[in-house]
Design a binder for these strands. Sequence first.
DNA 1: CAAATTGTTCCGGTATATCGGAATACATAT
DNA 2: ATATGTATTCCGATATACCGGAACAATTTG
Lengths: 266, 266
Amino acid sequence: MSKDGKPKTKARGLDRAFAILDHLCQVGLPQRPIEIAEGMGAPKSSIYDLVALLLASNVLEKIDADGRVFLGPKLNFWSTNYRKHFDLGGIVRPILENVTARTRETSQFCTLDGDKYYVAMMNEGNRPFRISADVGERTPIPWTASGRLLISHLSDQEIIDLIPEEDFHLPDGSYLEPSSFIESVRKANADQFFDFDSIADNFTHCFAAPVYGLNNRCIYTLCIIAPQGDAEKNYDEYRSALVEAAEILSKKLTAQTSSMSEMAAE
Amino acid sequence: MSKDGKPKTKARGLDRAFAILDHLCQVGLPQRPIEIAEGMGAPKSSIYDLVALLLASNVLEKIDADGRVFLGPKLNFWSTNYRKHFDLGGIVRPILENVTARTRETSQFCTLDGDKYYVAMMNEGNRPFRISADVGERTPIPWTASGRLLISHLSDQEIIDLIPEEDFHLPDGSYLEPSSFIESVRKANADQFFDFDSIADNFTHCFAAPVYGLNNRCIYTLCIIAPQGDAEKNYDEYRSALVEAAEILSKKLTAQTSSMSEMAAE
DNA sequence: CAAATTGTTCCGGTATATCGGAATACATAT
DNA sequence: ATATGTATTCCGATATACCGGAACAATTTG
């Protein structure tokens, strides 16, 4: 590290490679190596190297003749194995369907990726409307109801450290005080539930219930996105549907995980 | 590189990291770093390093207090994005269900990972029985009907180079001559179809039809696993059901890919 | 067709990742 | 407790990956 402000340290290939994958997720479209390098602010030659390596292992895939690449089939292979063991998909899908059947609203299965929230699975309600966040799209934690639950195991300081300053600036331009955000986190944890009028639009209401994994940490949430009128009218009904579904899911998922580690321990 | 037979070259972190993921897929259970190192025949200290890095980026996940790790939630995030764009899942699932509805047999969606075949999606038939290969399990290409189609774009030499010698030894102990395997590959390609009595057991029959991607390469297959009696009785019916489904799927998937690359090109 | 611009490959110096082996921590048996 | 065995961390030498910049190729523009 040099004496002035520039750390000037070489980035590790692994981290850069993963950053490429994250970058492509964010862009959501195939890109050429140079676009990736510029988009990430990374050295060109390194990105060319890494893209070639990732193509060779099929972690990236060449999409067109112009050299654009995107997430590759190897990821599908790994995730097929991941999902086989935790069986997200098989377990979660019917539960979402059940929630939507009971409430007729759009239901989602959400979790964290680093310091962001994302929707891992979605089940459209009977009268679908444009949802703020699409499947797989990373969204600032404070913008979401689920976010309150997903970080409730952290201390105040850890929360402050985790969440980037800019994520407290809500999409409507207003600023959410970290302290009042943390208050809502504590309340969500106490209630094992959180709901509020969506801050991404002004006509929907979000309900979120925690799904617990090992050592009772909330690792996923189930949530419902409903028009505010419906939400008010059916509040108790929706809330209990969601909480019950989340409890069932917690049991099923922890059963999975513990049976797997027992098998590993022979 | 030393003078005797030992190349003695350091492995690149990326490749080893990916090898760790592949190894865990193969084992199918959480493992401790030392088990991974020994299972892969890799240097211990390197594996400890890499496992720590992969844990930090959530590509691996700590499963129990003994330090066992397994595929992590980051893979789920990436694959959520992968699947969102290619929408395997959304497109393939109903097609498999349709095939199974028409034939009442177990249907599968298969592809390659490196020099091995695997089942990426499965739909159990109305009277399920134990299938030879589970979802996500890597199987030698020559053991499968789909394998013939998935490599049919390769030259004879490329096929020989790709497939490890030992994969021509079938599970029943017999040896399949590469030349006669290649013959069956060429026939499969000409027929755009392949079927045979399963070589993993002696009571099922496998049908496979090609799903084509860009430049008309067979990148996936649809297949049916049926009891031999049923297979014979309903041969034409099953075959056409599968071929029709595969054609529909080819169209849908290529439409996806090309629309994506058009968007990227603005 | 030349010039300018943009995209890709090549190359070499140096920061650093890999890996053998030693040191240490942990677990189990004596 | 002590001994024995196993798992993990630490450490340092050196092979090599990363990256700046030059060379080269492709594409667009005048």
